[in-house]
Nucleic acid binder design. Structure first.
Length: 499
RNA sequence: GCUGCCAUCGUCUAGCGGUUCAGGAUAUCGCCCUCUCAAGGCGGAGAUCACGGGUUCAAAUCCCGUUGGCAGCGCCA
């Protein structure tokens, strides 16, 4: 059996967005599943919008996502390199096939200006006909051509479309789709600049790179009949096509800025894990029989198949992605999370956040907050109070737990008593501390919570946080006593006044 | 306007003629656990399977039409 070869062919005209990643992912999964090859090809034939920066972003994003390509930029194989279309253009690759089509009578020079073509389309549309180029340059005589050239017109090359019959596409996802050739017009394959257009370059390269399966978004489905006609004209066998349904925003419109992040790298900045994004995207447009939700990358590779790709569009749901990210983080060891966190700090230039923080201590605090972490960027927010000298007291927490009429006397008592009793304590283990707190409650005839809560606020400045006694054990006796004393003097001992 | 694609809980989806008064996930609500917040466990609500016709003993599942959404119709990709 022939080796499966698939490709991801982005154009470097902007950031790599969610839809693009999904296309790349499905191709990659398919290649891996079939032990085939995944090719990355940069379609930079848009001379105005293509940028180097954008190419770099795509490469970086692919690397971050670990969607590694077998062939592509940095992994050139003599047979199909180079992988940038503009470089291929330099080599005359497209020109060669354009000439061949011309020689065979499948293409011709067209001297019409964009304005003239626009005019034709408008006219056609006004008559409720499909907006097409009318083919007026199809049969120009040599003299007519010379005349046009003399006028200074630079020709484009148009492909002579088969106007009768239908073109049949046997799509792996959608089944048989038929297109009426009458609706197609003689489209441009080579621009006046000598640069090939998408529909042409794409076919030439897919053929030359021996792509066996073209898996792409269904926004390309109407391009397919044109491409099929080129394959036929060149007597080439077409690859298998599979058009996946698109990913839309929550209002059903095409995914754009107003639906949240548009670039994948934004998700990286937020602290999403590569595997969470991959897992989530795999769920959009593909499913298993048992509707499994959580997959490891390995599992995805093993279970992926084109047959189980759906044909209806899906809406991107940031909430589910967030859940999945938390799920992935929970499944990691503290050591792994720590590594990921450090990586994230570097990537976002936030290393100063943990300046002076003890690494091992940081890991222990992460362990305490492990199942609360949804994004890597949450980590500092969750554990920073362990590291600062002067903790920030949350206003509501102070008001409610320390200073409310109902609780202030008891809080003052609990805190000042604890300062004294802790000073001479030997055993500062969480179990012992919990016993201490419960005993104190019994001693005073109050509820355990009336002891726990003020201590929590005094030691962390907040009402929410890790398990209290584990947190105190980790801080250690000296620091707990210090924080307790600071709190007492700050809120209860200022000239006898409650601030 | 023309053409194509699509149509099951808010969202992602299972379902490929009967075993489904439609299953899972997320979100939401409630209960339990509990020192707080999470996590976890349990449970609830949530889908006249877009609508209308057929086919069939039997349809979410097959066919046709309607409506709606999306996409394409560039010297963009």
């Amino acid at each position: 059996m022939k080796e499966v070869r698939v490709r991801f062919a982005p154009s470097p005209t902007g950031d790599l967005h969610i839809g693009g990643v999904r296309t790349a992912l499905f191709n990659w999964l398919y290649a891996k599943n079939k032990s085939g090859k995944f090719v990355l090809r940069i379609e930079d034939t848009d001379e105005i919008r293509s940028t180097k920066a954008s190419t770099q972003v795509i490469l970086d994003a692919m690397k971050w996502l670990e969607l590694n390509w077998d062939e592509g930029p940095g992994k050139e194989l003599p047979k199909s390199a180079p992988y940038y279309q503009m470089k291929r253009k330099e080599l005359g690759i497209y020109q060669k096939y354009s000439d061949e089509l011309m020689a065979k009578g499948f293409a011709y020079s067209c001297y019409c200006t964009p304005e003239e073509v626009d005019e034709m389309r408008k006219k056609a549309q006004a008559n409720k006909l499909p907006p097409k180029y009318d083919g007026r340059c199809r049969n120009l005589t040599i003299e007519q051509r010379m005349q046009k050239e003399k006028e200074g017109r630079k020709p484009v090359i148009r492909f002579k479309i088969h106007e009768s019959d239908i073109t049949v596409l046997n799509d792996l996802i959608r089944g048989k789709v038929e297109f009426d050739n009458f609706l197609l017009d003689d489209f441009i394959i080579m621009k006046a600049s000598g640069i090939p257009t998408y529909n042409f370059a794409c076919v030439i390269d897919d053929y030359l790179m021996e792509i066996t399966h073209v898996l792409r978004g269904d926004d390309h489905i109407s391009n397919t009949p044109r491409q099929i006609q080129i394959y036929n004209a060149l007597s080439w066998k077409t690859p298998q096509f599979a058009h996946m349904a698109m990913i839309l925003g929550n209002d059903g419109a095409r995914l754009s800025k107003r639906h949240g992040h548009t670039s994948v790298l934004e998700y990286r900045k937020e602290g999403y894990l590569q595997e969470a994004l991959i897992n989530y995207l795999a769920l959009l447009g593909w499913s298993t029989k048992d509707s499994q939700q959580i997959f490891s990358i390995e599992e995805l590779i093993q279970k992926f198949s084109i047959e189980r790709c759906g044909s209806s569009p899906s809406i991107f749901d940031p909430e589910k992605l967030l859940w999945l990210n938390g799920e992935k983080i929970r499944s990691k060891t503290v050591e792994q999370i720590y590594e990921l966190f450090i990586e994230w700090l570097k990537y976002t230039n936030n290393e100063k956040i943990i300046e002076g923080w003890d690494k091992e201590f940081l890991k222990k605090t992460i362990a305490l907050e492990h199942d609360k972490i949804k994004l890597l960027k949450d980590i500092p927010l969750l554990v920073d109070f362990f590291f600062v000298k002067d903790i920030v007291y949350n206003g509501d927490a102070v008001k409610k737990v320390l200073l409310s009429e109902k609780s202030k006397d008891m809080s003052r008592f609990v805190l000042s008593t604890s300062v004294e009793r802790f000073k001479n304590r030997q055993d500062f283990s969480s179990d012992a501390l919990e016993k201490y707190a419960r005993d104190l409650a019994v001693e005073k005839g109050i509820k355990p919570g009336q002891v726990f809560h003020p201590i929590r606020v005094a030691v962390s400045g907040r009402t929410q946080g890790p398990s209290l006694f584990h947190m105190m054990e980790l801080m250690g006796k000296d620091e707990v006593v210090r924080r307790l004393s600071v709190t007492v003097s700050k809120f209860f001992n200022l000239g006898g006044k409650n601030v």
